[in-house]
């Protein structure tokens, strides 16, 4: 008898092709999203963990968001000045910056920073928990790991992203004001007046909704990649990397879609 045999080889199972795998993944993702909506309304609620995750996503992102938002405001103002100067319209800088920041720059910068920092973190953390059997440990202690790990993180990213976006707008405007006050000698009051005259309710509302969706995407993709991670430490790295790449791709697609929707609303 062959003592090295630990399992018997039988006829190989037919594996699905690329299209089949894509369909299976889509079905898996749909099931994951569906489970989120099922679990999010069902008690018990993990309030403490939600608050902890909000702190992780929101407060811990503030230094990076402050820096990138401030620099974005300065750089955008600097790059826009020469074009406006050709028409003698540098006085429009505050309006231009406000519209650009609120409509596109702040949501995108916030989402991309969060995808890099939070999305990868979630993917790696849950991936690591999966391969070290911590998720299984929750399951066998009759605790719902999906509710504790996924629902809390997705809620945190969904609600913290709009908050961070508003913060990015303010920091970006601050950067722009520093630049404009040095270049054009514009007073703070004039700057603020021009900013508020330029933006509309639709600008603010659409950006908030958009970042809400971005936040949901970041949390959901990070959790999906991490929760379904496999193949040991290699899988953890892949989960983190894939979470960032997929989220960034989806954020740009969503940005494009939201642009079309908002433009259609404006046309009406």
């Amino acid at each position: 008898m062959n003592t090295n045999t630990t399992a018997t080889t039988v006829a190989p199972v037919t594996k699905p092709g690329r299209f089949g795998r894509m369909l299976l993944t889509l079905g898996d993702v749909a099931g994951f999203v569906g489970q989120f909506f099922k679990e999010v309304v069902r008690p018990p609620y993990e309030f403490r963990e939600i608050i902890r995750q909000c702190y992780e996503v929101g407060v811990r992102s503030l230094p990076l968001i402050s820096l990138t938002g401030f620099i974005t405001g300065i750089v955008f103002t600097n790059q826009s000045r020469p074009s406006l100067a050709e028409f003698g319209a540098t006085s429009w800088l505050p309006s231009l910056i406000a519209i650009a920041l609120i409509r596109a720059l702040a949501p995108l910068v916030t989402a991309l920073i969060a995808a890099g920092r939070v999305g990868s973190n979630i993917g790696a953390e849950l991936g690591s928990m999966r391969v070290t059997e911590q998720i299984d440990a929750m399951e066998v202690s009759a605790t719902n790991p999906f509710k504790f790990l996924v629902v809390t993180r997705v809620l945190a990213t969904t609600f913290m992203l709009p908050t961070l976006m508003v913060y990015t707008v303010f920091v970006g405007l601050l950067g722009a004001f520093v630049n404009v006050s040095q270049g054009e000698g514009t007073s703070f009051l004039t700057f603020i007046n021009q900013v508020f005259e330029a933006i509309s309710f639709l600008d603010i509302f659409s950006s908030l909704i958009k970042t809400f969706v971005f936040g949901f995407t970041i949390g959901m993709v990070g959790c999906y990649k991490g929760y379904n991670s496999s193949k040991g430490t290699e899988g953890v790295g892949k989960a983190a990397n894939s979470a960032v790449v997929t989220t960034m791709f989806l954020v740009f697609i969503e940005e494009l879609l939201s642009l079309q929707i908002v433009n259609a609303i404006r046309a009406v």
Partner: peptide
């Protein structure tokens, strides 16, 4: 579990409380 599967982000106290608080 073979590798203990302790929750890395929690202290020993929190690890032990986790199943108790929820059940």
């Amino acid at each position: 579990f073979q590798n203990s599967a302790l929750y890395d982000s929690m202290t020993v106290r929190e690890n032990l409380e986790f199943p108790l608080v929820r059940n």
